[in-house]
């Protein structure tokens, strides 16, 4: 089959490539948020963390010439934001949702402020693996140029799933999330466990943000994020707090985002915005169907404020 005769096949191939690309930030942010929510806290500020990660990752990669140092720096900035969220939430009478919105505004503002000088320069980008080497069709090769961070996320998903179910740490996080009183009775401090879980969530969101500025679209500007940080919070609920389902949901959400541009390439131009909003609609539908006024969402951590 030659490239010219692909015809409508260009759409699924482009969607596959696009889904891998678009899903990577979703995957990282949602795996991080999953751990935070498993500990019984929700961090709505990840949009701010994501944009801070994008800015700082780009800045460090630009200054040092190493994209991986940029990823690390983005993660560390995320840890700082996570620690800030956890610290404020550990005070009495403080609502974790409101703190999230506050940190979202703060993170976006700070990133735009500090990122002003970074709008022009180019930074080294993250490598991609040519997994389409077996094909001579350029579209297939392009679609299977899989970025390195996606592979990291792909490997990390089952590890996290196993660790949450089988390790001591996973057990502690889940126990704190299901009943902080039980955790306290066993001598664990819920505040400290949630601090670590929120820092981890921040780290992952920062890394997810660095993907935006260091791989795709691969530069820093103020319109970089289209709300991936907020969508990822919904995605965790959509995936019912299951890491493997998070991976699938990220691909699905990414595919929905990639469908619009892919259709545009074959001449269908309407409906892009609605396709991008499809994940929100699906999440809402799942919430409506799986909740009830009498019991909580199946699979939700017991201490989580948004499902109480």
């Amino acid at each position: 089959m030659s490239a010219a005769s692909l015809g409508l096949w260009t759409v699924p191939i482009a969607v596959l490539g696009g889904a891998i690309r678009v899903s990577t930030p979703f995957l990282f942010v949602s795996l991080g948020e999953l751990v935070t929510e498993k500990s019984g806290r929700i961090n709505l500020g990840l949009e701010g963390t994501l944009i801070m990660g994008a800015m700082s990752g780009f800045g460090v990669a630009y200054l040092t010439g190493s994209p991986w140092l940029g990823v690390l720096a983005a993660g560390m900035v995320g840890v700082i934001f996570g620690a800030l969220h956890a610290a404020i939430c550990s005070l009495p009478r403080v609502n974790d949702i409101a703190v999230g919105i506050a940190l979202m505004i703060f993170g976006i503002g700070l990133a735009f402020y500090l990122g002003k000088p970074l709008v022009q320069p180019r930074a080294p980008t993250l490598p991609a693996l040519p997994l389409g080497f077996w094909s001579d069709i350029p579209q297939v090769r392009a679609a299977l140029q899989v970025n390195a961070l996606f592979i990291v996320g792909l490997v990390f998903t089952p590890v996290l799933s196993w660790a949450l179910a089988n390790t001591r740490w996973g057990l502690i996080v889940r126990m704190v999330g299901d009943s902080s009183e039980a955790a306290r009775a066993l001598g664990y401090s819920p505040i400290r466990v949630r601090l670590y879980a929120t820092c981890f969530g921040g780290f992952m969101a920062g890394v997810g943000g660095s993907f935006l500025s260091l791989y795709y679209p691969g530069s820093w500007n103020e319109g970089l994020s289209s709300g991936q940080g907020i969508t990822a919070v919904a995605l965790v609920i959509f995936a019912r707090w299951n890491p493997v389902a998070c991976f699938g949901a990220s691909l699905l959400f990414g595919g929905a985002g990639a469908l619009g541009p892919a259709l545009q390439a074959v001449g269908v131009t309407s409906g892009t915005y609605l396709l991008n909003a499809a994940p929100y609609f699906l999440t809402l539908l799942i919430l409506v169907l799986s909740s009830s006024s009498r019991r909580r969402v199946a699979g939700a951590p017991g201490e989580l404020s948004v499902t109480k």
């Binding site: 709505l44 949702i97 709300g227 907020i230 969508t231 919070v233 919904a234 609920i237 909003a277 929100y280 609609f281 999440t283 809402l284 919430l287 409506v288 909740s291 009830s292 006024s293 009498r294 019991r295 909580r296 948004v306 499902t307 109480k308």
Partner: peptide, 15 residues
């Protein structure tokens, strides 16, 4: 339906 109003209003807003 017992759906958390914060999350649902955020989703509705994006839609």
């Amino acid at each position: 339906r017992g759906v958390n109003e914060t999350i649902s209003s955020l989703l509705l807003s994006s839609i």
